[in-house]
Design a protein around this nucleic acid. Structure first.
Lengths: 191, 191
DNA sequence: CAGGCCATGTAACAGGTTACATGATTCT
DNA sequence: AGAATCATGTAACCTGTTACATGGCCTG
């Protein structure tokens, strides 16, 4: 149930149309909650139906015509309620670990290259986030808003740091592994 | 598309029934890919239909009767294919950061308590994983399989460490924040 | 034989992904 | 007029979640 609340937050920061929201979900908001334009339009429709947001008046409302939304008091109340309500952390899920465990059974062929590719991607993200930190959170930017957003960015930086370190370590392990895990074809009969 | 492959891996490690798989997904496998028994039964049906696994012969196949599965060669081939195929990392998604960003707009009331609760949960997980590491990956356990599974566990430990550190840091920030973010009721008109 | 647990399932729904459809505007 | 781009939307599908249903077995 996070998407509607992410949208409410974005609209409180600045009333926007669907496509503008999509762009913001590709940039800053997308760093911690991604969404496609289809999801966003669907959710805008729901939020409007529930009376949480409303479309700003426009001359000719029609398909293909820009439509901006703003948050209504009921929407702000719902966002405050949701933000302060207890929520359990979602269980961890990452395909890479499934693949690693599978590789322990069917062999590591091919996996190593993809780990290297992931390492590059995570290093790139890390550099990108560090650039943003330098640009947007220098000295003097310490209103409550700034500090909360900085906390989020720090989480992103720390997580990308975790991935680069873990992948580097994993690739080192692979170096010293026997050519294959020994669980390839020849094993099929045994299991 | 990870669940079917997690199941194939589990069945290669040891042929099992649906409920036995469910238990293993609550324990070791669940540390990186959780699944409920409904998901597992649904997926077992699909995998059987695709010829990737088959039910072991049993006297009286009937509802309420235990039914064990084993992986067929086609299933092993599919698992090897999937494991070595390139896959992009999934975009990051965490409700906690949505809540933090929302709190920057509607105020931090109530959120702090829930962060404290999360901190306790992550510390507990961390202790649990460290216990497993001590028990299952002591000296002398360094076959290729052991080392790959240890890598996965290290990821779990490092991620829980990240969370405990980040939450501790976030709670410290909260201490020095003004009583509220100043973005409560009184702001509604301005935005 | 009642209650509890083991075991396998069904049904309905929510959220996210992918592919496609349609209208409006701008540029050449 | 045609092409590119902006903008909104529909539809089908897949995965995961929640609630419930059914049958067999064991124990008191």
């Amino acid at each position: 149930m996070s998407l509607p609340h992410a949208i409410l937050t974005a609209l409180l920061e600045k009333p926007s149309s669907g496509l503008e929201l999509t762009r913001r979900f590709d940039r800053s908001i997308g760093y911690f909650w991604s969404a496609t334009h289809q999801q966003i339009y669907r959710e805008l429709g729901k939020l409007e139906g529930e009376g949480h947001i409303r479309a700003l008046p426009s001359e000719r409302p029609a398909r293909g015509q820009k439509k901006s939304y703003e948050v209504l008091p009921a929407g702000r109340a719902e966002l405050a309620r949701w933000t302060s309500a207890p929520q359990d952390p979602k269980p961890w899920r990452d395909a890479l670990f499934v693949r690693l465990r599978a590789a322990a059974v069917v062999g590591t062929d091919g996996l190593e290259d993809d780990l290297r590719r992931h390492l590059v991607l995570h290093r790139r993200k890390l550099a990108e986030y560090e650039e943003i930190e330098k640009r947007d959170f220098g000295p003097g930017r310490d209103t409550a808003q700034d500090r909360l957003q900085h906390l989020i960015l720090r989480a992103g930086i720390d997580l990308q740091t975790f991935w680069t370190q873990w992948l580097t370590n994993a690739l080192e392990e692979f170096e010293t592994l026997p050519g294959d895990t020994g669980a390839g074809e020849g094993n099929a009969g045994r299991l």
